[in-house]
Structures are given as C-alpha cells and as structure tokens.
C-alpha cells in the first residue's frame, strides 16, 4: 500500500496493522523518518508532491523492490504539506520470508524515496525559507544499489 497524506500519522498502529495475519512471513522491517529541527533552523518542513505522478513513480520504485528482494508485501506512507519538527515524515515497512531481504528492501526504498521520488522539500526557518536538494550522500547512497 502506498499513500500520501497531509495529516499527521502514528507509525505504531501502522506497523501493528502491517504485521497482523502473517503466519508465513517470518520478517518485517520498518523505518520511520522524522522531521528534524536542525537546532532551531527548521521550524516547518514543507513537502510538495505532483498528485498522480508522485504515486505512480513511487509505485514503480515499489514494484522494483518487490521483485528484487522477493517481498511478500510492503507499505509506504509519506507526508505532504506542512510538517513540524519531531513529526513522522515517512513510514516504510517490508515483509519477507527472511530478515536480510526485509532489511535491505527497507534501506533500498528509503534511498529511492530520498532522491528519486517526486517530492520537493522546503525548510522554513527564522531566516526565511530554502529548498532542499539531494546531498552528495544521497547520491552515494543510491549508487550502492546499481
């Protein structure tokens, strides 16, 4: 399941729900990304998406992950709109027969969400606003999967 939401969410119930009824799964890994305050530099994080296109692109990333890691299931929830420091921005869960695949798929999905999914991120701070672009680290992270 892939969803974009402009509402805050609690990762706990999402993970519980994702784990339910999985007698044959064996391994579930999850990741939750939280908005950072950057020592007061970021008061609000604003995330923009391209409705329709963003979901489709994430869907394509998810399908690649599903095949590559032989996943049984996956879940991606991503915030859009205005997000306060400490609030969850993204939640990813993966289900596989064994832990390695579940861990790696989670890592892979996050690397692709960081710099290949159509989101644009603006940090609003005391000195104004600035657009965030992928860092060298993000490009290095994604290069690991080539």
């Amino acid at each position: 399941m892939i969803s974009l939401t402009d509402q805050g969410f609690d990762p706990g119930p999402l993970l519980s729900g994702f784990c339910r009824g999985r007698a044959e799964t064996g391994a579930v890994a999850s990741f939750t990304g939280l908005a950072r305050a950057e020592g007061g530099e970021t008061r609000i994080l604003e995330l923009e998406a391209y409705p329709g296109f963003t979901e489709a692109q994430i869907g394509a990333i998810a399908e690649t992950a599903r095949t590559r890691f032989d996943l049984q299931d996956l879940m991606i929830v991503h915030r859009i709109g205005q997000i306060a420091p400490g609030e969850p921005v993204v939640f990813v869960a993966t289900a596989a027969s064994h832990r390695r695949a579940a861990f790696e798929a989670c890592d892979y999905l996050m690397d692709y969400l960081k710099s290949r999914a159509p989101f644009w991120k603006k940090e609003h701070g005391p000195e104004g606003a600035r657009w965030v672009e992928p860092r060298t680290q993000d490009h290095e992270d994604i290069a690991r999967w080539a």
Partner: peptide, 10 residues
Amino acid sequence: VAFLPPMSGG
C-alpha cells in the same frame, strides 16, 4: 508539461 527540479523526499 511539468518541470521537475531535483527531487528530495523522505
């Protein structure tokens, strides 16, 4: 036609 600058999610 949509113009998309470098993407940054997560």
